[in-house]
Amino acid sequence: MVVKKVVKKGSKDLYIKEIYYFLKMVSFKELVERIKDYYRFSKQEVSGLVVAIIVTGFLFSFRDWGVEEFNLIFGLKNFLLAIIVAAISFWFKISCQKVYGLGEGQDAEFKTWWVGIVVMLVLGFITSGWVPLILAGGVVSSFMVRQRLGEFRYGFSTWTMAITAMWAILGNLILAIIFSIGLHFFPQSYFLDVGMKMNLMMAFCSWLPFPQQDGLALFFGSRGLFFLGIGATLLAAVLLLTKTTIGLIVAIVIGTLISIGYMMVGSEK
């Protein structure tokens, strides 16, 4: 699709045109090829993620090492389940960001925030696991020269970085809804319960505008998206944490409408 209308600089039409160009997608075949060629987790990403996953799993299972007294087997089982949930959540969230980045000609890589991991661990100890923050780091993007040739506005874009950061929140919210659907059918499941709570917390912490977190790219990339991010997270938290059927349905409907809108606006070029 080509925007033929001649627009003046600074006009509303130009703004809409820019949004269109930033939301567009590369052709599906091209995206698949880019994923085949460039979708990977580097050694330093994996080493950081392993630590982040273990610490996150530990914090979310901190209060589940026995009902009335300490129970090692019970605790280890919960710890293992929380680790699996953390691994799925981190993988899905970062994959969303990487795939979007590749579509835009940017190589997104997870950068571990070691200070954040220490902060979340110490805060978890101090509050006895009541405040399990997830400050494990965020994604940094780099410019892929060959994949940007011929693109509108060739240079590096803070808006693209903001959308990449936004995908961290969206990825977690999608997973939270999926876990919540499972929880609707299996209300006693520890795995699904932790999954929903962890993803909501992860979405909130991704939004925080700290250095090394995705929220900072979102804050400087687009103030509107920044507030949309916290709004979406709080809305999802209210709808999902109440564990009511109507809340779940409303969350799914809103998510579906946004997805349809995104796909319609961002059609293939």
Binding site: V118, F125, I126
Partner: peptide
């Protein structure tokens, strides 16, 4: 403040180990 709030010897040692590493 951190040391004061950590009312367990084990958590105090664990925290100081990660703080030392950092």
């Amino acid at each position: 403040v951190i040391a004061l709030l950590l009312r367990s010897a084990l958590f105090t040692y664990l925290s100081v180990i990660v703080a030392g590493a950092l």
